[in-house]
Design a protein around this nucleic acid. Structure first.
Lengths: 334, 334
DNA sequence: GTCCTCTCGTTCAACGTTGAACGACACACG
DNA sequence: CGTGTGTCGTTCAACGTTGAACGAGAGGAC
């Protein structure tokens, strides 16, 4: 049997479809007695509104899209989980896309999700830079996650990557480390996150009066465990002998720690390690991983707020972070 | 400016809206010359079809919903990533929901995703049992992930949990383990996954002629790292002295390994460990984690196939698995 | 010349919903 | 007794799209 419509309910009660619509939406004037009867009928026939018709009429879909590079990366998975939860609380459903960090896909998504209309788009770009978005035609509200230098056309929400990276480096300095390696620099491509975190690393060292040893800055292709592992192998094979590692995200840190453990390098005794993102995995690694912990809950809530902000509030919006102190940076004192 | 419609394009070229529709969809008869002109106009005005109107007219939305307990759990994140990728390849968009394993939410989702109409629903239930779904009213196709005893009304796709658990246990037996603990039994609630994996564990021991020591079967509240950690602490505090652990998923295994490492119990030398799910994290843990590796790619592809299968193919559909041999189960011989 | 077929394009209505505009009826006010 | 003012409900049209039905013209067969 076909799904019941407003008209079916209306015929049953003997009123107009519009009146049933008013009961469903709490609009207009309906006497208590009639409302009651309509509500009974609604339940009896099992009415559920037709989303497509509503959307066609009102222009709103009640859906927002989230696009991340890879959902399988714990940080993005936790971000998505947090966003979906927040959205469910606001009666919004979330549509998830993966870009694989490809500029082409990211652009397509910023121009509207394929054929599906959504009320807003939250994009965590990897390949796309500020300038790529200027020529955007689609009028769907767009909020960017992660920092984007020089973009002021769209709102973007982010932790202050540079400040956070600086704080992470300072934490390593505070426990006595002096030869701090950085894993996660990116020579090619416009990965602004890597640039900003590197800037924070440099700033902390300079402020501490420690010259930056460029050989301790290790580039990576991507921010995966295997890239961290590769960098750690290079540290070992080239005999760089750092006393600490600041990895630009937790996966890099975990990949590196895995290699260090295999090579019998002790963490934190021989090398302290700190990551970035504070994914849950780091709380159960051996040793547990210190990390920059961005306030993800605030991040996603702000992102949704900004998506629907009237008037729009373009520009950068930062959320807080803390440093999670765990075993991988316990100083010699401990 | 408002989004251009078929009519806008039609007026521009001087044809009817329907003809433009025909060009867009490749239906009906249009001369090559006219089609060409329409296509130019389409690009010029930047036409993009209105999903709501299409759906209202055709009844199809091009969207499917995925509902998992928690997206932040790596297994579900990797599953979702895989499903989204597969769906994108088929020009389907995926809407993600989280149930938190609550029966109420799972039921609501099985009855249609809130207000939003989708072409199909893929549900990975935790709390909901077979009987809960019998009274379902909604006619949206539904496919279940994970095993459900006795449900034949809906298609469900799963690995053969019992066979896989048996294989995992046999792997531990094959490297010489005899006191094999099982972490992940669930006394309360209808978690059928736990029941089936426990059955496989028992079957392997019985077949090998080893009596099942009930004290080695450790119950958990959930399948998270902390539950695995708690179980491992109990193993230590109660002096159970197993020579191997079969954890019913990788998170339990990783939580347990973390506690073992902290307590200076060596894996695999003192205790071998095997998990289930083969999440990426296990390839970088210390030591790397052996695991049952279900064929997730096949799982999600089958799930989508079954969603749209005509005629429907209710009942169980199993996908394959392999055992990933890693450091956590390297026998003494190595 | 009539009928048929084929090609190419049109008009029409409908999908289910809701904003806008419009009664109708009751009551109060001057 | 007319003129508001407020309450309750209706009708109408439109959102953008596409299936169905319907021309109109060209060409071929009888």
């Amino acid at each position: 049997m076909a799904r019941p419509t407003l008209k079916d309910v209306a015929d049953r009660v003997g009123v107009s479809a519009k009146t049933v619509s008013n009961v469903v939406n709490g609009t207009g004037w309906v006497t208590a007695e009639l409302r009651e009867r309509v509500q009974v009928a609604l339940v009896e026939v099992g009415y559920r509104p037709n989303a497509a018709a509503r959307q066609l009429r009102s222009g709103r879909s009640g859906m927002i899209a989230l696009a991340v590079p890879e959902l399988s990366q714990p940080y993005f998975a936790e971000l998505a989980a947090s966003l979906v939860r927040e959205a469910q609380g606001r009666l919004i459903t979330v549509l998830v896309n993966q870009t694989d960090g490809l500029a082409e896909v990211e652009r397509k998504i910023s121009e509207g999700i394929g054929a599906t209309a959504v009320d807003g788009i939250i994009l965590s770009p990897l390949a796309l830079g500020a300038s790529d978005l200027e020529g955007r035609r689609d009028s769907t509200p767009l909020v960017l996650l992660g920092e984007h230098i020089g973009t002021s056309t769209f709102p973007h929400v982010t932790v202050d990557n540079t400040a956070a990276a600086k704080a992470a480096t300072q934490h390593l300095l505070s426990i006595g480390c002096r030869r701090i390696a950085a894993i996660g620099a990116q020579d090619e491509g416009p990965n602004e996150t890597a640039l900003l975190r590197l800037a924070g690393y440099r700033a902390a060292l300079e402020e501490a009066g420690i010259p930056v040893d460029e050989s301790l800055i290790l580039p990576v292709d991507a921010f995966h465990r295997e890239d961290g592992a590769r960098a750690a192998r290079r540290i070992l094979s080239e005999g760089l002998q750092p006393d600490a590692i600041f990895a630009f995200n937790d996966l890099l840190a975990l990949g590196a720690m895995h290699v260090l453990a295999t090579a019998n390098v002790r963490v934190p005794d021989d090398v302290a390690v700190i990551g970035f993102d504070d994914i849950e995995e780091g709380r159960y690694s051996t040793p547990t991983l210190s990390s920059v912990s961005p306030n993800t809950g605030e991040l996603v809530a702000r992102a949704i707020d900004l998506l629907f902000a009237q008037p729009p509030e373009p520009g950068m919006h930062t959320v807080g972070f803390t440093i999670a102190h765990r075993a991988s940076t316990k100083g010699p004192a401990q």
